[in-house]
């Protein structure tokens, strides 16, 4: 009975129409109220054809300008990178250094002596003339010991070289008159002549100031000879 009851109820309601149950129901009014609650449809904008062409042209110009700007920016960045790389002390660097080459040349330099000093003869002296020469050398890295760069020698340094010792005739101050005897002696023994001259030089240099007169006499005598 129960199953039949439910089946009969179901069949009866399946074939029912809304007009039979609720005759005054206004579908259109219900739809108007319902459509107001529904979200509005997205309206599609109709774009004319010439607008698309204009948009294409504008888009092309924009893309071109952006591309050019991008390329220029990239060039600037690359230049900056190159400069940065050049500043890095990675690659070996060559710098010009100067070196000095000495050339000797004989010049006559007057010997200036103090008044108190004994007069000396003019002697030929060797003068070293400095010449600059450029030498290329690699520079050591920074992290290593700092590179020592010799400064350029701009001044000519004078090195006084000793002139060859000339023969000095040994003369004893007290035995000037015995010159003939000493000459004869040296002629017989040259080694003795040398020893005697050396002794005479030393004695002249060590001559005290009180004996200046004697020394001048000695030099005058030597010149005259």
């Amino acid at each position: 009975m129960g199953t039949d009851f439910e089946k009969m109820m179901n069949d009866k309601m399946e074939n029912a129409s809304l007009h039979d149950v609720l005759p005054g129901f206004d579908k259109d009014q219900a739809w108007d109220e319902l459509s107001e609650k529904l979200p509005a449809k997205k309206k599609r904008r109709v774009v004319p054809v010439w607008w698309t062409h204009a948009a294409a042209v504008v888009a092309g110009v924009l893309i071109g300008s952006v591309a050019i700007t991008t390329i220029l920016n990239n060039d600037d960045k690359q230049a900056e990178q190159q400069v940065t790389i050049a500043n890095k002390p990675v690659a070996p660097q060559v710098i010009v250094k100067t070196d000095t080459v000495y050339v000797t040349k004989e010049v006559e330099v007057p010997v200036v002596q103090p008044v108190a000093a004994p007069l000396q003869p003019v002697q030929k002296q060797q003068v070293v003339v400095a010449q600059q020469k450029e030498v290329a050398q690699p520079v050591k890295k920074k992290d290593q010991a700092p590179a020592i760069v010799t400064e350029t020698l701009t001044e000519e340094k004078t090195v006084i070289a000793k002139a060859p010792v000339k023969k000095v005739k040994p003369v004893h101050l007290l035995d000037i008159e015995n010159e003939d005897r000493n000459t004869a002696l040296y002629q017989s023994d040259p080694s003795a002549k040398v020893r005697s001259g050396f002794a005479l030089q030393i004695s002249a240099e060590r001559l005290p100031a009180s004996n200046q007169h004697a020394s001048s006499i000695f030099h005058g005598f030597k010149k005259s000879k």
Partner: peptide, 15 residues
């Protein structure tokens, strides 16, 4: 319940 009882009723009456 008579089987025809439901059949004799209208949908409105049944509702």
């Amino acid at each position: 319940l008579d089987n025809d009882a439901i059949g004799r009723m209208s949908v409105k009456e049944l509702m």
